[in-house]
Amino acid sequence: MKQMTLSALEEIMHRCAGDDESTDSFQQAPERAFADLGYDSLALLETQSVIRREYGVDLSEQALGAAETPQQLVDLVNRWLSAV
């Protein structure tokens, strides 16, 4: 079954919010907060819409808000993918 990887999430977020060569990659810092990696709430909102489109996972804003790091968001998406 299809699963999301850290690098796939990073690619989506670069597409949504622009890449920023000055911050760590998700592989290097899977548990750093999105805010510290330079992503604001709008970047996450945009990411939510791409995940819905490309993975068929419709995260609620509440669930999205609870995922504070790349690893947490990837885990959340993959739990969804395993459940359906």
Binding site: C16, A17, G18, D19, D20, S22, G38
Partner: peptide, 8 residues
Amino acid sequence: LPRRLLPQ
């Protein structure tokens, strides 16, 4: 400009 500013 920083690349983060370009998409917005």
